[in-house]
Amino acid sequence: MEIFLDSFFNFQIMSEASPLLIRGLGTTALLCLVVIPLGLIGGLTVALMALSRSPWLRWGTIALIDFFRAVPPLVLLIFIYSGLPFADIELSPFTAVCVGFFLNNSAYYAEIYRAGIESVGVGQMEAARSTGLKKIQALVYVVLPQATRNVLPDLLSNTIEVVKLTSIASVVALQELLYSADMARSVTYNSSPIVMAAGIYLLILWPVVRMLSNLEHKVGK
């Protein structure tokens, strides 16, 4: 038991590592603030392309979505970070992560938006157009609000996944929360900093996961 506590809940080490972890948390937060809005905007754009009337654009977009859904995000990230420099495209870890996440998240958010928009009947669009709204106005004021509400649980669920996914940025040496914790672990030969990082993720995400669960059950009824 004592060994267990010493290996995983060593408060001495935790408190020593905490400045590092807090700085890491700051980077994680910054990363989220950039990649989540970027993914939402990208996803919406891609969804509208996937619902286009032109079959070329439609199928091209769907192929692109499936392409980025098939590539594991870490593979994409490593390719961007250490593959592209061979083509003289050198990106900082932060930029590389943002580009990788933008490509990956846009595909996932796009699928959700697409389902949402499809769930709103054509009658809504027709009704809005019949009152003289332009297509874009009908979309923004009538269709999208309903679509977003219909897929809110999925949007939230995917956003949780994005926040969790930022941890893979540690692999390309971006000093976010997990990277800082792992650095502290390798210096101290003790896993407590990782437990602490886990605790921080739990603190942030558990309430959101709970909320999502309730939302899903409410929507399900």
């Binding site: 969790k164 941890s167 914790a181 886990a198 993720y201 995400l205």
Partner: peptide, 10 residues
């Protein structure tokens, strides 16, 4: 809840 909240890499 815990396994849904924690990043797999952690």
């Amino acid at each position: 809840d815990i396994l849904r909240s924690l990043p797999p890499l952690v």
